[in-house]
């Protein structure tokens, strides 16, 4: 199986989520701190900085550094943002897979996958829906072979 990367749509979705969260935080700050000018601007500044950090640094790095592939009957996932992680799960011990789709993923055609193994689990965020289903089928086929 060739290496799979996260689609650009996943980044757009995360950035959209960051924008929505910052917008809601901004409204909350405006409602709660409008009387205290100093705290209002401080909170707004922090929220803006947080948004920029996630929008421009965290999510792009997260997308670029994420990849997964099947190798030697193992599912290998490279991930992490500042720390790099390679997670290896032997497919023989995988119990089942969950495909998770939140309402905001539907228009982007994305799906997250949770791989449940004995004693551990693994989360693969925002894959293409077809790739998620393909992964589920591959794992099921592997289980049947065992």
């Amino acid at each position: 199986m060739e290496k799979k990367l996260l689609p650009r749509r996943a980044l757009r979705l995360w950035q959209l989520r960051a924008a929505a969260a910052t917008f809601l935080t901004g409204i909350l700050i405006a409602v709660l701190l409008s009387d205290c000018v100093f705290w209002y601007w401080l909170a707004m500044g922090l929220a803006g900085a947080g948004f920029l950090f996630f929008f421009c640094v965290y999510y792009p790095l997260k997308r670029i550094k994420f990849s997964y592939f099947l190798y030697c009957e193992q599912l290998v996932v490279d991930c992490g943002v500042f720390y790099s992680r390679r997670r290896v799960i032997p497919l023989g011990n995988v119990q089942y897979l969950t495909i998770l789709r939140t309402p905001d993923m539907l228009p982007f055609g994305l799906a997250s996958v949770i791989v449940h193994s004995v004693g551990s689990s693994l989360y693969l965020p925002c894959l293409l829906k077809e790739e998620a289903e393909q992964l589920q089928q591959l794992c099921a086929r592997q289980q049947n072979c065992d």
């Binding site: 720390y83 992680r85 004693g119």
Partner: peptide
């Protein structure tokens, strides 16, 4: 056969 997951973590 008793390994559930291996994580290589690099700071």
């Amino acid at each position: 056969s008793r390994i559930s997951q291996v994580i290589l973590r690099q700071s």
